[in-house]
Design a protein around this nucleic acid. Structure first.
Lengths: 215, 215
DNA sequence: ATCTGTGAAGCACTTCACAGCG
DNA sequence: CGCTGTGAAGTGCTTCACAGAT
């Protein structure tokens, strides 16, 4: 069956909420309660899950542990994913230092840069390699995900090389609209674009109005 | 007229592409050419722009300079936006050091943290203030956007305080589903969620298959 | 009584296709 | 002829509403 991409985008949200509920010792949760905590309608949660199976119990709800396991399996989070970082500038070093990836099963196993001053340096247990070695290194030892943290000018070239090395998923921090063949997945991380769409809604409002109470 | 939110989300993309074309000295562009470079259909671009006016010339296309000006005006990018950062840990410092905001008219004018070791320190031309001063400082000198870079546990509290100070837009780096009243806009920056949805598509594929040529 | 799973209805967004202008 | 602007058609996603399970 063909599952709507928006559904896939919501599953990680459910996963995270369930993980937090499990830590709290909660055993069962209804679509109603889960939805309220996430700002999603209960019907949507039920419909989303129904694409993959019948995980709930009528009259009770979903077993937190079981649903979490199912979602991990569905999303492929029951294994480790290997990632390569390209670009070890200020942004790249912040990405290397970020703990959030590893704790969720995503490991940066290679880091590359063109700048000779950075090549050879050790950053967070990794030795920065020369970007020209990207192809030989990744061909021998493939990764699942490429993280692009280079300037806009070279980003498309880097993406092309990564794809040639068999990388099928790219986390793109560079401010460009990446062109990739079908079957390759790109997610862009772009705070500026996010800001630029919010300003549309802000621009005609009086500055700092009386705050509305929680809806 | 009520404009679809997805349309607003695409306008910054167009803006960026046009800015790049302008630098290249291009004077006119068709929806066809702009679409190809962005991976968007020409019809979609024309429809999106038609919500706001008639900016093109039949038989020719759009004047790059003029369309860029219009989009800046529509999105409210023809002025400066003031932002406050909360959380000056590793992530917060990376955000402070990021040049991409300022060059697009977004200025971080205040930085807050709870940690006494960080309070008073100067980071990137800003003095880190105590988080308990958030309300008095922002009430006197309001900001447009709040950037949340605190741990998950305290993120909702920080967001509540920001909203009480009149902040109407939040850039949320914390791994939580923020609850906000209607009229407040939140964009989450969450690389891990992006990765977790891509793995769904990767999980059943052979590792590093023969790369598909550009589509 | 409660809450799931799901067809059917409703809504939102995208694409088509073409009239009309340059 | 080329390309925009736009109703109309088409597609995809969300919500409704209720039968059925516990």
């Amino acid at each position: 069956m063909e599952i709507p991409p928006v559904v896939i985008d919501r599953l990680p949200l459910y996963t995270r909420a369930l993980a937090s509920l499990e830590v709290q010792g909660r055993e069962v949760i209804s679509s109603q309660d889960l939805g309220t905590s996430l700002g999603v309608t209960p019907a949507q949660i039920r419909k989303d899950l129904s694409y993959f199976g019948r995980f709930g119990k009528q009259g009770r709800g979903y077993n937190v542990r079981k649903l979490l396991d199912e979602l991990h399996r569905i999303l492929g989070l029951d294994r480790q994913w290997r990632m390569a970082l390209v670009g070890v500038g200020k942004l790249g070093r912040a990405i290397l230092g970020y703990d959030g990836f590893r704790s969720q099963g995503f490991r940066i196993v290679e880091a590359f840069d063109v700048n000779p001053e950075r090549v050879g340096r050790r950053v967070d247990n990794l030795t920065v390699r020369d970007a020209t070695d990207l192809e030989p290194v990744l061909s021998k030892n493939p990764v699942d995900v490429g993280i692009v943290a280079v300037p806009a000018e070279t980003a498309q070239d880097v993406i092309d090389v990564l794809i040639r090395c068999g990388v099928r998923a790219i986390l793109n921090y560079a401010p460009i609209a990446a062109r990739v063949p079908s079957g390759v997945y790109v997610k862009r991380i772009e705070p500026v674009l996010a800001l630029q769409s919010m300003t549309y809604y802000l621009k005609n409002r009086p500055h700092a109005p009386i705050p509305t109470p929680r809806s």
